[in-house]
Design a protein around this nucleic acid. Structure first.
Lengths: 144, 144
DNA sequence: TCACTTTAATTGATATATCAACTATATTTG
DNA sequence: CAAATATAGTTGATATATCAATTAAAGTGA
């Protein structure tokens, strides 16, 4: 393997890119006009309808600015309804529309299949090991 | 740890994001006006001045369209010189300018430090393990 | 209560990601 | 050789990433 950096960090980047590419392809087969990031937002909001944009951003490691624009698109495409939160008028309440629900239902099998496919042949021991090492790297990067 | 997907794939994404954020911050301290992707292109071109845009794209998993635009910016900022290749006139030859060389020299210690910091406390055994598992995932994603 | 600080979200600017359509040049094949 | 095909790169459109500056609403403390 030619690796211009000579570090495993390069493999991490390669992995996530391959996974995203493959996931997007499978999702697009079923629903055109939705991205995997938008799908992830649907997943988050289905479980917890009270999420604010900040909570979503923190949950999926995105900038608030990115979330603003993703949500905006999803509202325009009628996957979501955004209403201002009366308890805290800086916030919004985000909910799936019927179309959003239906879309997520349609995509759920593909999403599960994508994950299963990516992790095929890995023992739960290997996955635990992987997660542990990754979190060590995350913590290293965070300590400044 | 709250993980909305419940899979390690989420940790992979988180890891690369933290690493990129941390790397960009340290690079920006030294050279303003350069991105980590541009830095990576400098690194690649220093080792092998004959690289075409396609070769660079394949090496760092980027779309040809992305490379076109990254190179364009780097030429504009005078990090690179782009000349058309007489052997194959579809291609270009890319070379670092003196400014590109100097910039990379300036950044090299920070780049090495970033990598070292991210992987601090990991045994070479763990790193091998990590790389092996990641390549299994990559290969899973590629087999369609 | 009023000034100060913090928080949630937005906006503008710029960089990158991705897909599709396209141009120009090379290569292959009948 | 001519037609078909493949390759290298570009361009347009749209989505996301990131930073900095800004707005509006809460929260805090004297």
């Amino acid at each position: 393997m030619k690796n211009p950096t000579g570090t495993v960090l390069y493999s991490i980047e390669q992995t996530i890119k391959e996974y995203r590419k493959c996931s997007q392809k499978n999702i697009s087969r079923i629903v055109k006009d939705i991205t995997i990031d938008q799908t992830l937002v649907l997943i988050i909001l289905r479980n917890k309808t009270t999420s604010s944009q900040k909570e979503i951003a923190d949950l999926i490691f995105k900038d608030y600015a990115s979330i603003t624009r993703i949500i905006e698109l999803m509202v325009k495409k009628e996957f979501l309804i955004r209403t201002s939160n009366e308890d805290d008028r800086r916030k919004f309440t985000l909910e799936l529309t019927a179309k959003g629900e239906k879309t997520l239902d349609l995509l759920t099998p593909a999403i599960q299949q994508n994950r299963k496919k990516a992790l095929k042949g890995l023992s739960s021991d290997e996955i635990d090991q992987l997660d542990k090492i990754l979190h060590k790297i995350i913590s290293n990067c965070k300590t400044q």
